[in-house]
Simulated scan of single mutants.
Amino acid sequence: MENKRKELLFSREDIQNRVKELGKQIAKDYEGKKILAVSLLKGSFIFAADLVREIDAPVRIEFMTTSSYGHGEETSGHVKVVHDLNMDLKDYDVLVIDDIADTGLTMEFVLEHLKAKNPASIKCCVLLDKPSRRKTELEADYVGFTIPDKFIVGYGLNYGDYYRNVPYVFAFVD
């Protein structure tokens, strides 16, 4: 992949500006609520860190780890919880944060899993939405950018074990 050309999809500035807009909207929508942000690891950690800093309200942050991709470019279709939340969600308005909604299988699974813990409310926020690949009825409540059906990398999204640290989003092209 190193010798392939990179196609820039969203610059660092594009992402920063959109994350600020999302943070303002979420702060407005959650005004007066007890916010619990749940970052889905590993992909969302950079986005989640930037996003919660843009939410002008008290936010509790927790982390969940799920698995469905392994090291490939395609989801296995089977989602499992690797690390769960160990807390009572009863009084919290939960915002699940992920890097991308692709097939929708992971987010749909996580939302159903967390709904069973009886939060006050539950919504989701994704940096990237790829609706052309959706296998569920999932519609994210907050979306950074809608993207075409390309395998994208950077800003938390990996290829193998690398590229999460790249501050922009790109696709490899032939």
Rank of each mutant, 00 (worst) to 15 (best):
135 K>G: 01
88 D>L: 14
134 R>C: 01
65 T>F: 07
60 R>D: 14
81 V>D: 03
104 G>S: 00
101 A>D: 03
112 E>Y: 09
83 H>R: 12
95 L>T: 02
72 G>W: 06
97 I>C: 06
114 L>A: 11
97 I>H: 02
73 E>R: 15
125 C>S: 14
128 L>D: 06
116 A>N: 12
115 K>T: 09
73 E>Q: 15
92 Y>E: 04
82 V>H: 02
77 G>N: 04
89 L>M: 09
73 E>W: 12
83 H>V: 15
80 K>C: 10
71 H>D: 15
118 N>E: 14
68 S>I: 05
86 N>T: 15
132 S>G: 06
135 K>V: 07
84 D>Y: 06
80 K>L: 08
84 D>M: 06
68 S>C: 03
140 A>W: 00
108 E>G: 08
98 D>A: 03
109 F>P: 01
72 G>Y: 13
97 I>P: 03
96 V>G: 08
89 L>C: 10
92 Y>L: 06
71 H>N: 14
78 H>L: 13
113 H>D: 08
133 R>W: 01
75 T>V: 12
90 K>A: 15
132 S>T: 03
112 E>I: 13
137 E>M: 10
111 L>A: 02
121 S>A: 15
65 T>M: 12
60 R>P: 10
116 A>R: 15
76 S>Y: 10
106 T>D: 01
125 C>L: 00
112 E>V: 12
65 T>K: 15
127 L>E: 03
125 C>E: 05
88 D>N: 14
100 I>H: 04
110 V>L: 01
80 K>D: 10
87 M>G: 07
64 M>E: 05
110 V>W: 08
122 I>R: 10
129 D>V: 00
78 H>M: 11
62 E>P: 04
107 M>I: 05
62 E>W: 13
74 E>G: 15
114 L>Q: 07
89 L>K: 04
93 D>P: 07
103 T>S: 13
114 L>G: 12
75 T>R: 00
113 H>Q: 14
117 K>H: 11
